[in-house]
């Protein structure tokens, strides 16, 4: 049952066109949590003089990862949509390095899921960005 939920959640995330366009790679996933990484790509640079990845690409990663955590939660019967998302950018991601994200759905009601997420690169002790968000709980995918 739980394994099935995770499998469906994986298919759900894999079918997102924009996640594919950014080359996101779904990592581990459990009940109410997910890990996704974003390999470095010169097309996603936001500051041409340094080669640092655009904050928007990090936002897309954190949003997708947060959504994956909601979809994989046993109390969420279906899909999800973002209600709001706040992102704090602690530092620039190091150019050339893959950005990893982990999101956790720490509370869920019949209508709203609450999520925290963190992004980091090779230096895992110093996060690149953190996010908190609320998401809808849907009856179906």
């Amino acid at each position: 049952m739980v394994v099935d939920k995770i499998r469906i959640a994986r298919q759900f995330i894999d079918a997102i066109p924009h996640a594919q366009a950014l080359g996101m790679q779904l990592g581990d996933m459990g009940e109410g949590w997910a890990e996704i990484s974003l390999p470095y790509d010169a097309r996603f640079v936001g500051e041409p003089s340094t080669g640092v990845i655009h904050g928007g690409a990090v936002s897309a990663l954190l949003d997708t990862c947060s959504g994956a955590a909601v979809v994989s939660h046993p109390k969420n019967p279906g899909g999800t949509a973002t209600i709001d998302l706040r992102i704090d950018y602690m530092r620039a991601a190091t150019p050339g390095e893959t950005i990893h994200a982990r999101a956790e759905c720490y509370h869920i009601t019949r209508s709203v899921a609450f999520v925290r997420a963190t992004a980091w690169d090779a230096d895992a002790d110093h996060p690149v960005a953190t996010a908190t968000g609320t998401f809808t709980v849907e009856k179906q995918l």
């Binding site: 997102i16 924009h18 996640a19 904050g55 936002s59």
Partner: peptide, 17 residues
């Protein structure tokens, strides 16, 4: 730019970016 192919709807990350 699509996030949910079933609706379809723009990806929340695209909107944020």
């Amino acid at each position: 730019l699509i996030g949910n192919p079933m609706l379809p709807a723009l990806h929340g990350g695209v909107t944020a970016a």
